[in-house]
Structure formats: structure tokens, C-alpha cells
């Protein structure tokens, strides 16, 4: 049976994209935590094994991954506050769009403070 051609993407607005980003970042953070529990548990195997594994993280690819992880956590945290306000503040639904722009603003400010220092450490080679 031939496949039907795809339908169009639903063109939701800020609420839909913020929800999608919240999901994606949440998923990414979950997988990080999974790996993080495993590598931290290695310290119980032997401190040398732990040090060896952590040592392999010290390369530019993982450095960029760390930047992505912080970005995901920062967005997820600020947007989580927005969602909490939508849930518990009676005017929250009416200001959800404004609050998303505040979230994005806080995200940009936080990342602007973090990224230069972090990327300096990753690529500065000291």
C-alpha cells in the first residue's frame, strides 16, 4: 500500500514550542543523569577507575556537551518556574507568553555569564 503524503506540521505558537523544548531538554537531562550515576558509582569500584573515566571527559567534544547540558538545565529550570506559575498563579495562563520571554531573557543572561568562562577553560588549555 503506498504511503500517504505527510500532512503539515501543526503551527502552534510559543506555548507549543516551549513545551517541546521542555520535553527535549528534560529527556537530555535524564540521559545525562543516567550516565552520571554510572560514572559516579565507579568510585565505589576503585578511585583509579573513577579517575580514568572522568579523565576521558576532558576533551573539547565533551566540553561542548557540557555547555549543551548547562543550556538544557538552565532552560528547563527557568521554564519549570514558568510552568509552576501557570499551574498555581490564577493569572499565570494570561501571562504565559510574557513569562516565556522572561525565561528566554534569563536564559540568555545566564548563558552569557557561563559560556565565556566555560569555553575558555575547555579551549584555553591551561
Amino acid at each position: 500500500m503506498p504511503e500517504a503524503p505527510a500532512g503539515t506540521l501543526y503551527r502552534g505558537r510559543e506555548g507549543m514550542w516551549s513545551w517541546l523544548a521542555h520535553r527535549v531538554t528534560g529527556f537530555a537531562i535524564f540521559f545525562f543523569l543516567l550516565v552520571h550515576v554510572l560514572d559516579t558509582a565507579l568510585v565505589r569500584v576503585s578511585p583509579e577507575a573513577y579517575n580514568a573515566v572522568i579523565g576521558t571527559y576532558k576533551n573539547p567534544v565533551m566540553g561542548l556537551g557540557e555547555a549543551g547540558l548547562v543550556a538544557a538545565v538552565v532552560y528547563h529550570a527557568f521554564n519549570g518556574i514558568r510552568i509552576t506559575l501557570i499551574d498555581f498563579w490564577s493569572k499565570g495562563t494570561r501571562y504565559q507568553r510574557v513569562m516565556l520571554w522572561i525565561v528566554i531573557g534569563l536564559f540568555v543572561v545566564t548563558m552569557a555569564g557561563f559560556l565565556p568562562r566555560h569555553l575558555g577553560n575547555v579551549f584555553g588549555g591551561h
Binding site: 502552534g12 505558537r13 510559543e14 507549543m16 504565559q96
Partner: peptide, 16 residues
């Protein structure tokens, strides 16, 4: 709280 419903409502109901 995705708000697609509020945006779609032709009667302007604040669905969310």
C-alpha cells in the same frame, strides 16, 4: 499547558 487549545478556540475561550 501547551496553549494550542486557547489559540485555536474560535470563540475566544481561555481554554487552558
Amino acid at each position: 499547558t501547551i496553549f494550542n487549545c486557547t489559540e485555536a478556540c474560535p470563540r475566544g475561550i481561555e481554554v487552558t
